Amino acid sequence: MEKKYEVLADTMAFEGIPPERYGEVLEALGAYCRTYARGDLVRRVGDEMDFFGIVLKGGIQSVIPDGGRRQIVQQFAAGSVFGEAVAFSSQRCGIEICATASGTEILHIRAAAFLQGDTNPHIARMSTNLLRDMAGKLLMLNMKVRILGKQRLRSRIADYLLSLDPDATGYLELPFGRIELSEFLGANRSSLSREIKRMQDEGIVEIERRTVHILRREALENASEGTYDMIDSGKKMRQIAEEEPLFADFLVSKGFPFSVDNPVTELVTFDDVVALKDLDKEAFLEEYAEFKRNAGK
């Protein structure tokens, strides 16, 4: 087996297939290898996708181009399989696929070869493996849709960080740099940097380059669950108190001279109160979330 194919032993596609049979399987599938420079397009929007690929070296990412902006869908490192869903559906490519590192090597495998009724048991095993791989990617895309559905940037950041698996010491390693992360989360880079700085200042996380340490997991979970959206801050205070009676109790517990009988509550919104009292809105609502949980115990 050629050295560059050694990575296949760690891919889901070749799980259960003896390494000494890799050459036989690749030949039967009409596989071939190509090398790409950083930034090279493997496929453009509208191109035919008659193959799926396995990254042997380097990396690629799938991107939705939107004028001058880009929305990263997924990143693929060495050992990753990509493009199988489009290849087997006979659809044209709906995204751009580009190399993220110089010397990226990709093994191209013709999808049509799986439809020729080959009785090779190793090819049958690969078909099963690919179905499992596609199922995992579907779950990942569902997560991405959920993240992008969050209105607040902090909620998107929190949801994404909570989706990552920490190492034995409790640290997370981001697969993205700051630019790619902003594209993945559908956010402006400056806005992302400001929000991350606020989260660090509040002692929720520590982030050094791509290494993340979650310091206050509960606060991160609150952000992910949309705690900060539980109050429509544009509504008048009386309406908020009528719809959310515990919020009135919380205000009193914080020393606010609040009463629904006060006619002023029909005139001011929660945003007005935030501005008047110079409150940290997100921290204040985080405290309310804790108050609400304790009240339910």
Rank of each mutant, 00 (worst) to 15 (best):
residue 198 R to N: 15
residue 122 H to S: 09
residue 275 A to E: 02
residue 246 L to Y: 13
residue 75 Q to V: 02
residue 119 T to C: 09
residue 175 P to M: 01
residue 171 Y to Q: 14
residue 269 T to E: 01
residue 48 E to C: 08
residue 189 R to P: 05
residue 99 A to R: 05
residue 51 F to I: 01
residue 172 L to C: 14
residue 285 L to C: 13
residue 129 N to E: 15
residue 117 G to H: 07
residue 15 E to H: 06
residue 86 V to K: 11
residue 142 N to C: 04
residue 225 E to P: 08
residue 77 A to M: 04
residue 153 L to I: 01
residue 136 G to C: 06
residue 251 L to S: 01
residue 95 I to R: 01
residue 228 Y to I: 12
residue 57 K to I: 15
residue 109 I to P: 15
residue 83 G to R: 09
residue 26 L to R: 10
residue 277 K to A: 07
residue 238 R to Y: 02
residue 25 V to M: 11
residue 199 M to F: 11
residue 148 L to F: 04
residue 38 R to I: 08
residue 179 I to W: 08
residue 39 G to P: 04
residue 178 R to L: 14
residue 80 S to F: 02
residue 137 K to Y: 06
residue 47 D to R: 01
residue 10 D to L: 13
residue 43 R to D: 12
residue 181 L to T: 02
residue 264 V to L: 14
residue 31 A to N: 12
residue 217 R to K: 13
residue 279 L to W: 00
residue 12 M to F: 08
residue 16 G to Q: 11
residue 42 V to C: 07
residue 19 P to Y: 05
residue 167 D to A: 09
residue 277 K to I: 03
residue 127 S to N: 05
residue 88 F to G: 10
residue 199 M to H: 10
residue 96 E to D: 11
residue 206 E to Q: 03
residue 72 I to C: 04
residue 204 I to H: 12
residue 28 A to N: 10
residue 129 N to A: 15
residue 202 E to P: 11
residue 266 E to P: 03
residue 194 R to G: 09
residue 181 L to R: 01
residue 273 V to T: 00
residue 264 V to H: 10
residue 141 L to S: 14
residue 224 S to E: 08
residue 112 A to W: 14
residue 66 D to K: 15
residue 247 F to K: 01
residue 294 N to W: 05
residue 91 Q to V: 05
residue 165 D to M: 07
residue 48 E to D: 15
residue 54 I to Y: 08
residue 162 L to I: 07
residue 209 R to H: 06
residue 8 L to M: 10
residue 213 H to K: 15
residue 223 A to P: 04
residue 111 A to N: 14
residue 252 V to F: 02
residue 266 E to V: 01
residue 34 R to T: 03
residue 18 P to F: 09
residue 127 S to F: 09
residue 157 I to S: 02
residue 74 Q to R: 14
residue 280 D to E: 08
residue 230 M to H: 03
residue 77 A to F: 03
residue 159 D to L: 08
residue 48 E to S: 13
residue 169 T to D: 12
residue 135 A to F: 06
residue 137 K to D: 03
residue 248 A to Y: 00
residue 24 E to W: 08
residue 233 S to K: 02
residue 265 T to P: 00
residue 123 I to F: 03
residue 155 S to V: 00
residue 110 R to E: 11
residue 201 D to T: 06
residue 57 K to C: 15
residue 19 P to E: 13
residue 244 E to R: 12
residue 249 D to M: 07
residue 282 E to Y: 07
residue 34 R to Q: 12
residue 198 R to V: 14
residue 215 L to A: 08
residue 108 H to F: 11
residue 48 E to M: 07
